[in-house]
Design a protein around this nucleic acid. Structure first.
Lengths: 145, 145
DNA sequence: CAGGATCCCGCTAGATACTG
DNA sequence: CAGTATCTAGCGGGATCCTG
């Protein structure tokens, strides 16, 4: 009964996208306005003063304020909330350093890095296809208006 | 002034994730509960009766009802809405065939296929990492409760 | 079969102000 | 610097009923 087995496999493969399935949860984690941006930030960094640093695929630990500066537009609330959610699922670890001004560092884990690759991919897709999408959108709108 | 140029590039690269920027829009298109599932559906197909068909990366045209059957759980409203949005941005073309019962076919375009690759990636990530995520979540919850 | 209209609930996310 | 509490508007998205 190979066909049945094959169908079963297809189901397993598919069910990540089915509603109600627990396997859908990791995908839902990606949704949320700031998840992708935050996941992507630690690698897209190209701080001034380190011109040669190929900002390759090396997410590094970042401080809270650092991220918020990079992502201009995120509210403190959402930053904290999103980071906590990501911490819960693992992509980041959160280490607090009690000092005069408290500092909190968010370091990507293995899982975080793997997710980072995905979002990087999404980012570059958005970048290269953006023009195309917007053009199509306008064309479409003008046709129907 | 190479440094400046480099920073400018980094900005361009980064701004896909910044709020308010129009370049953020393609990314927002991905959000929405059903976008990823729908994008992924036409390739994850493994219809019974075609056992040898490696359901590789070949998204094909699908009918509305076909998709809804595949994605068990999506409401008709959201199906239509999402498909229309995707049509506007291009990933799909929509062709109506007036007949006794109207049939509507949704065929992926080039852009759609490229997006399809991204979502496939997300899907497989979710599949392989799902267990890990859920485990971490539980561990985390038990620590804090 | 496909899609629109309407109603309605709940969550997301922003603004603001306050603590350690 | 980082986080929390409260309030609030807006939208996502489900259910239900109706058209071609």
């Amino acid at each position: 009964m190979k066909a049945a087995r094959k169908r079963a496999q297809a189901e397993v493969e598919q069910d990540v996208f089915l509603a109600g399935r627990p396997s859908r949860q990791p995908l839902d984690r990606i949704s949320g306005k700031w998840v992708a941006p935050i996941l992507c930030a630690p690698g897209g960094d190209d701080s001034p003063g380190r011109p040669g640093a190929a900002h390759a695929d090396a997410p590094r630990a970042m401080r809270c304020s650092e991220i918020s500066r990079l992502l201009a537009g995120v509210s403190r609330k959402m930053l904290t909330r999103t980071l906590r959610a990501l911490e819960r699922d693992d992509p980041f670890t959160r280490t607090v350093t009690p000092a005069a001004p408290v500092t909190v560092s968010h370091e990507p884990t293995d899982l975080g890095r793997s997710l980072h690759h995905m979002t990087r991919g999404l980012g570059s897709w958005a970048r290269t296809r953006m023009a195309e999408v917007l053009a199509n959108r306008e064309k479409h709108d003008s046709r129907t208006s």
